[in-house]
Amino acid sequence: MRRLIKGWLLGVLITGLFANIVMADEIRPAFLSLLEQTNHQYQVNFKVPLHNGTRLSLQAQFPAHCAAISAPSVQQDELISNQRWQIQCQHSLAGQSLQIKSLNNTRTDVLLRVEFADGSLDMQRFTPAQTQLQIAKPDSRLSIAASYTHMGIEHILIGWDHLLFVLCLVFIAGSLKRIILTITGFTLAHSVTLLATSLNWVQVPIAPVEAVIALSILFLACELLRADKTSLTWRYPALVSSTFGLIHGFGFAAVLTEIGLPQNGFATALLFFNLGVELGQLIFIGSLLLLAWIVRQFCTIKRQDLLHTTAYTVGTVSAFWLVERTVSFF
């Protein structure tokens, strides 16, 4: 009983120290997409998140030689405001600078995606510390592959819900062989739903998906705490990871839907985004194994205490997410 109480208290303490993780989904990134059409005309799509029901006061500032030729049309739901309009520029935006006004007063980023008429793609990120960027025009296929690989890696490494799910899988799998099999199952499963959603074969509302993702993490946290080696989860972790991986794939697909896939190079973008996600997972798992080796060299921590602490920490965070995302339905 004392060990359980100690694990619970330590888990709550760690959760408090990493409160930003718990609130990771409070403010989503914004997306600014520019699609070049004919004669340096661009279709602009600016998705700005809502905070407490109010749109963040972000404004895209284009070069002086660009002017709007249509009034913005606005669509808004409970999470995001989406503005669409067209601008006409005297010459290409390649090599030009863009700025996001008021971004320095927020805690969010703005992903910039510029697709040129020849299919080449430039993807960059505005931050509160860097509100102005210069648009590049790299080679088409190479730029798409590099941009979407980077985006996949970045998404998984800042996606705390996916990382906590993988963390629990690593603990449950235990040996390197079982970890490889378990993560492979997770990868194959979420690749299937990512592909199906991107090709519009399946469409699922994102809000319930995010709630189920939180539930999957809470389930694994409970399994960690029980540590019943005879349970289905502990005996066949690859089966469990594959089952929940189908749901997590819808979450990855939602990110691609917001970012958008290029008209030219659709398959390349999809392939390399998925590759980036897998590279991000491998980086995370490699870091976990390295950390575990270092801890074993310098500390003596009982595995059961570590399991309890991890279970309570992950369980507290995922339970919060589950409640928060379920309440958002109403």
Rank of each mutant, 00 (worst) to 15 (best):
I183M: 07
I100C: 09
Q75M: 14
N82Q: 14
V204M: 09
L282A: 12
D118T: 08
K302V: 00
A94R: 04
H162R: 07
A30S: 12
D305I: 00
A269F: 03
H248N: 08
P63M: 07
L232T: 07
A319P: 08
R3W: 12
I156A: 10
A94Q: 05
W8Y: 12
V166F: 09
S57T: 12
S216V: 07
N52Y: 13
T127R: 11
I153G: 10
G280E: 07
S73G: 08
L121Y: 02
W201N: 10
V202N: 09
K101M: 13
L17V: 09
R107M: 11
T15E: 05
T127Q: 11
L256Y: 03
I247H: 09
L142F: 11
C168N: 06
V170S: 11
Q130T: 14
T182D: 01
I283Y: 06
E223P: 05
S92G: 14
G280W: 05
V209A: 01
I144C: 09
L32Y: 01
F298L: 13
A146N: 15
L288S: 02
L282T: 01
H248T: 09
N82W: 03
I259Y: 07
L142H: 13
L194R: 04
R296M: 11
P128E: 03
L322P: 11
F31K: 03
L224Q: 08
P237C: 01
V240P: 03
A129Q: 15
I14R: 01
L112E: 05
L50S: 02
S231N: 06
Q130I: 12
L188T: 02
Y236D: 00
W201L: 14
A254E: 07
S81F: 04
S287M: 13
L322H: 04
I158E: 10
L306I: 00
H155G: 02
Q281S: 10
E78Q: 15
S328C: 11
L306S: 14
S242T: 13
A129P: 00
L218Q: 09
A211Q: 06
V48P: 01
A71F: 11
Y42E: 04
L9E: 02
L9M: 14
R226N: 15
F219W: 10
N104T: 11
I14S: 06
L13Q: 02
A253V: 12
S120K: 11
I179C: 10
H248E: 02
E324V: 11
S70T: 11
S140H: 12
T184E: 04
F266G: 01
H162F: 02
E258Q: 15
S147P: 01
P72R: 08
I247S: 08
E115I: 15
Q134P: 13
Q203I: 13
D77C: 08
I301D: 00
H308Q: 15
S191P: 08
V317F: 11
T182L: 01
G185W: 06
L306A: 15
T197E: 12
L220K: 09
T106S: 13
I14Q: 04
V12R: 01
Q41I: 13
S140F: 07
Q88L: 13
S216T: 10
L17K: 03
D161Q: 06
L32A: 04
F171V: 13
E223K: 03
F116M: 04
G159R: 06
C168R: 04
L261P: 14
I14T: 10
T184V: 04
A94V: 03
L225Y: 14
T309D: 00
T268F: 00
L98S: 06
S241I: 10
L225W: 12
W293Y: 13
L239H: 07
N264D: 10
L261G: 10
M123W: 03
V255I: 14
